[in-house]
């Protein structure tokens, strides 16, 4: 177990997030992140534990705010992402949004609206390509380390429910 929580982000997924962010300019984009959290820990103690969060894919969502400075993920898209994740034996591990004209630092609004200690908030800046990950701890969003990996390293060893039963395990 690593001493600090770490977010493992495939380069291809980061590319998708930045492409989404650039398409949405001047508005913010938003969406969900599907993956696995390892090891499984009690959510009530997640702040105190070191865990790795493996992001495997993204699910773009509609921004109901349609704003350059605000986002609200359409709950219907969130619901669809949860169902997609469950069908694959995964979970929605977090969400992402863009800061079109600023750094990917958690804003006052981000701090205020964050509500889930078990949820990762990824922020991307379409202009610079910068990305940072945040998670609520003690009432504030704290930054997490991101490890960007080539896609071939993104093997979690967790069976995918959508895989064919005859397909050999990775």
């Amino acid at each position: 177990m690593t001493p600090h929580a770490q977010v493992v982000l495939p380069a291809a997924v980061l590319g998708e997030l930045l492409a989404h962010a650039r398409r949405a300019v001047p508005n913010e984009c938003c969406g969900l992140l599907i993956g696995v959290t390892s090891p499984t820990v009690a959510l009530s103690s997640i702040d105190e534990r070191a865990v790795d969060i493996q992001i495997e894919s993204s699910a773009p969502a509609r921004n109901l705010r349609l704003s350059p400075t605000r986002y609200l993920i359409d709950p219907a898209d969130h619901f669809a992402a949860i169902r997609t994740a469950r069908a694959r034996g995964r979970t929605v591990v977090g969400g992402y949004h863009s800061h079109p004209s600023g750094p990917p630092d958690a804003s006052t609004t981000d701090h205020r609206d964050a509500s889930d200690a078990a949820f990762i908030y990824l922020i991307v800046s379409p202009g610079t390509g910068a990305v940072k990950a945040w998670r609520l701890a003690a009432g504030r969003l704290g930054e997490l380390t991101i490890r960007i990996v080539p896609d071939r390293e993104c093997q979690t060893g967790v069976p995918d429910a959508s895989d064919s039963p005859t397909r050999p395990a990775p």
């Binding site: 605000r70 993920i73 969130h78 949860i82 804003s107 609004t109 949820f119």
Partner: peptide
């Protein structure tokens, strides 16, 4: 029945 929490925030200002 499914419970779906809202996810919201906003840009650096």
């Amino acid at each position: 029945l499914s419970i779906i929490p809202s996810v919201a925030g906003g840009a650096w200002s």
